[in-house]
Simulated assay, not measured.
Amino acid sequence: MARYLATRAWQSLLTLVLAAVVVFLGIRALPGDPALALAGEDRSPEALAAIRSEYGLDQSLPVQFWQYVTRMVRGDLGTSIRTGEPVSEMLRTALPVTLELSLLAIVIATLLGVLAGVVAAVRRGRPEEWVANGLALVGLSVPHFWLGLVAILYLAVATNLFPASGFVPLAEDPVANLHHLVLPSVILGTGLAAVIMRQTRSSMLDALSADYVRTAEAKGLRPRVVVTRHALRNSLIVVVTIVGLQLGALISGAVVTEQIFTLPGFGKLTIDAVFQRDYPVIQAVVLVTATSYIVINFAVDLLYSVIDPRVRVAGEAA
């Protein structure tokens, strides 16, 4: 087990280093001169030279990269060109909003998707499966922005069941925080729930036709035990993979939902930084996104070894 964890940790660290290199070079490859954007109307050679010197843009790429890495190791992600605030403070404010939104969406999508997938597999060819497949098709087909606008119109404006916009920090008022995030979390999780449902159904159908399930049924175990302890557990590998990958995607891709519900999260910070060519913020946003994918994939690898011992044994033998 220790060797398996050490191998995955080393691979994750190497991926993080490569991601930092790609982020640094990718930002520098963007067209245009950031000094011109920062200078505003005063674009004299003296002003441009002062700006390049202040932000290190007059240094060579290796020197800039070394300064970037050393500051990043110390936790210094730079200062926003747009606002003058430390980037780490901006991330500390925006990231918890998106993390909470994404985690709620993942929980809702997993509960709905797994339950619907199990029902559709167990009740194959019956009305329950048709309903589950129909809802999954709707969840995959309807765009989030349209569904979010409709939800605001009918559930916030018309009936006043949920707030139409805004955010309350969890530490300030947990009830109000949940009240503001339930609706956007459900909207964000609809598409993911549909994907989880379809994959769970497919994996459950394969498991239910396997020899070990037929053996369990022949031994006289109750159907509920056969489904939950045998078929479902062996189907969770696919579910864990999807949830892990989609959590990283939600953290970086909740832009539309955050804009519709006016949430001060990662998405708004990213859009503002891109439009105003705020290099330090863009670097930090992309690096945090890449890091989240790496950490989540490492966690998924650990869950693999817990759910299926064959993965752990294969990792030890490698």
Results as ranks from 00 to 15, higher is better:
317 A>E: 15
10 W>L: 15
237 I>S: 11
151 A>T: 07
275 F>L: 13
170 L>H: 07
211 D>N: 05
156 A>T: 05
82 R>G: 12
105 A>K: 02
115 L>I: 08
245 L>D: 07
29 A>M: 15
58 D>G: 14
95 L>M: 10
71 R>M: 09
272 D>E: 14
219 K>I: 06
244 G>E: 02
244 G>L: 08
267 G>S: 08
158 A>H: 13
232 L>F: 00
125 G>L: 09
92 R>G: 15
79 T>R: 11
198 R>G: 04
212 Y>K: 08
253 G>Q: 06
226 V>H: 01
130 W>A: 15
242 I>R: 05
141 S>D: 10
19 A>M: 12
271 I>A: 06
191 G>D: 00
38 L>S: 09
111 L>V: 15
204 M>S: 02
91 L>M: 15
113 G>V: 09
221 L>P: 04
290 A>F: 02
237 I>Q: 02
301 D>G: 03
95 L>S: 03
174 P>I: 02
205 L>C: 03
256 V>K: 04
154 Y>K: 11
62 P>K: 10
297 N>T: 10
211 D>E: 10
150 V>M: 12
282 I>E: 07
133 N>S: 12
59 Q>R: 15
301 D>M: 10
55 Y>E: 11
259 Q>W: 10
273 A>W: 05
264 P>M: 09
159 T>D: 11
266 F>D: 05
215 T>H: 06
315 G>P: 13
234 N>C: 00
313 V>Q: 10
61 L>C: 07
105 A>M: 06
192 L>S: 08
243 V>W: 00
221 L>T: 04
96 P>T: 04
154 Y>P: 07
12 S>K: 07
286 V>N: 02
279 Y>T: 11
215 T>D: 01
274 V>R: 08
194 A>W: 05
169 P>T: 06
192 L>N: 00
73 V>T: 12
74 R>P: 06
222 R>K: 09
234 N>K: 01
125 G>Q: 12
232 L>G: 01
150 V>K: 00
58 D>P: 08
60 S>L: 07
299 A>N: 00
307 I>W: 05
301 D>I: 04
58 D>K: 12
242 I>E: 03
160 N>I: 01
266 F>H: 01
134 G>M: 11
155 L>F: 15
234 N>G: 04
101 L>Q: 05
226 V>P: 03
316 E>K: 13
175 V>M: 07
147 L>P: 12
303 L>R: 00
290 A>P: 08
288 V>H: 01
161 L>T: 07
219 K>S: 09
59 Q>I: 10
173 D>K: 03
245 L>W: 09
88 S>E: 14
126 R>K: 13
45 P>Q: 14
149 L>P: 06
139 G>D: 06
6 A>I: 15
65 F>N: 14
40 G>W: 14
241 T>I: 00
187 I>D: 03
70 T>D: 09
155 L>D: 05
137 L>T: 15
313 V>S: 11
211 D>T: 04
285 V>A: 11
162 F>Q: 10
27 I>D: 11
244 G>H: 02
196 I>N: 02
152 I>E: 01
111 L>T: 14
